[in-house]
Amino acid sequence: MSVVTDSVAAPADATDMVSVRAVHKVFGHGHDAVHVLKGVDLDVARGEVTVILGPSGSGKSTLLRCINELEEITGGSVVVGGDLMGYRKDANGTLHRLHPKAVAKQRSRIGMVFQRFHLFPHMTALENIMEAPVQVRGLSKRAAKKRAMELIERVGLSDRMDHYPAQLSGGQQQRVAIARALAMDPELMLFDEPTSALDPELVGEVLSVMQDLARSGMTMIVVTHEIGFAREVADHVVFMDDGVIVESGPPSAVLDDPQEQRTQDFLAHVL
């Protein structure tokens, strides 16, 4: 595979949870091809919270989806927890695509929370949380239920555990979705605009659950437009535009003293 650069060989820093190297993503072929990611490098240390900001269409969601293999990358490499995602490299350096089962196993260690929740509507809140531990990990129903009840308490919804998603508010659904992702004991949590589909008064309850999670030492990558959350919770803020990372650093630097014109323009619009 010629698209893979030499940087694949570079050993990941031992403290790095995520190491994204020169990632390109092209959707479609020929004339319809859209080049969404144009060489992205990103490192996230264990226990660190990284917030990705940027205008819509800048490739933030795509980057997130490439990290857990929901999208196959076109070039570069993604390493999560020391594992090359989606491929096996043989002694000659040739890449072999992993079997879907192996990819599924890699994904099971990464939790993801979606903008539109995507709870399973035919299952109660508790059943949603129990589903993956029982079906993927082979946990007994009893053990999964015990764990699910702990998690649903952690997101403050013990009194709603027998409700179907349609009977919950958006904020409650998103908290159940976070508990569902946590049930797999992920090493890394990805949040794809978790509060963008919520009414303004429900945003706070979801952000506070995420803040608690960050405090507990979870490694998190969060795509969001909540600048306040970025300022308070993030260790790193990354600003993306047009498929590349324009600027990154601690929140105080990127948010309060942006060096790049594009970052300044964006922040002027959202703040």
Binding site: M112, R116, V136
Partner: peptide
């Protein structure tokens, strides 16, 4: 909704299970 398949994938479920369970 294709989002259902995606959510199940993100949880590490295999294709057969996604079809049967979700």
């Amino acid at each position: 909704d294709p989002g259902q398949t995606e959510a199940a994938k993100a949880l590490g479920m295999k294709d057969g299970k996604i079809m049967r369970r979700v």
